[in-house]
Design a protein around this nucleic acid. Sequence first.
DNA 1: AACTGTCTGTTGATTATCCAACACCGTGTT
DNA 2: AACACGGTGTTGGATAATCAACAGACAGTT
Lengths: 174, 174
Amino acid sequence: MTSEKLDRRKKYTRMVLKDSLLKLLKQKTFSSITVKEICELADINRSTFYAHYQDPFQLLETIEDEIIADMRKYLHTYNLQEKEDALRMTEKLIQYFSAKHEELQILLNKSGELSFERKVRHVAEQFMMNKMTSEEKNTHLPEYVSKFIISGSIEVLKIGYLRDVRNHQKKWRS
Amino acid sequence: MTSEKLDRRKKYTRMVLKDSLLKLLKQKTFSSITVKEICELADINRSTFYAHYQDPFQLLETIEDEIIADMRKYLHTYNLQEKEDALRMTEKLIQYFSAKHEELQILLNKSGELSFERKVRHVAEQFMMNKMTSEEKNTHLPEYVSKFIISGSIEVLKIGYLRDVRNHQKKWRS
DNA sequence: AACTGTCTGTTGATTATCCAACACCGTGTT
DNA sequence: AACACGGTGTTGGATAATCAACAGACAGTT
């Protein structure tokens, strides 16, 4: 942990730049987005952009990395409990997807680059497989189940219906 | 017009400070609000506050003055048309109240100080009386009517139902 | 009365952002 | 080919905001 001491100004600048890029990604393809555009939307001077990021791609990478780190952290807190069953783990996973559906949906859909999707799948899989007993691991069944659940969640998330899923969640649990 | 050249940073700082004060006024009385509190909510250094305003009261005054100026400007554009009838003028007035109901409601209700309310009434009255013919003015009737309408609007606004009024506006016009 | 904690108003040194300007490049126009 | 246009990446000086620190005022505790 290189403890970056973050000035309020830096924090604000980076935040609005990230927000701007995400907003723009809703509307147009990544490669069509210009530095100038990002800065105008963020109301930040263009030279300030270059003080933080080399180019839009590096900004995008930063956003992705932060989401991955956040996801890892979130899931890790629930990893501590011993031997949760698959259903509860799935629930946690979907809760996270649901909470961050706005960003995740955008990032997963910016077709072309699917490295982000790979990373998400990887973290999710680690989480699901983590607490299996070694005997369970010998049968490859849990692996298939994990992959199945994760793929399903991600594809649904991409389409954008996950919010509805969350809304109906209570009903299902009865 | 002392043409204030406004740096983006100044604009942002002042904006968040104003927003913060308004948010706090929703929750507590003006005199119980501290500079520190405003700055923490705005995420602005306290010393920066003093670079812009002497104290919370001056900040409040600024907010009020800007609303008054904005209101005057808005109504002025509709003042240009000749001889609009009272009904249409009233409509414009209420439209403005409705558009700004969030701020207006807060500012009008911070009981104690009613100087702001006086200013609002004054601007509104000017607007209503402005286009009366001199014969009309001789009878004091329009004066009473204006006062009546304005008082009514303001009181309704204070209670917070004006949004509902706007929502039902279309029905009334039929 | 001494003590504690909190807000105040101000300061000086440091850092971040702004702005305007620049040369460069690629694309499209005439 | 010459040209205008718009985005790029970079610079230097001006300006604004940050942070940390300070002494003073005040209210509540012990």
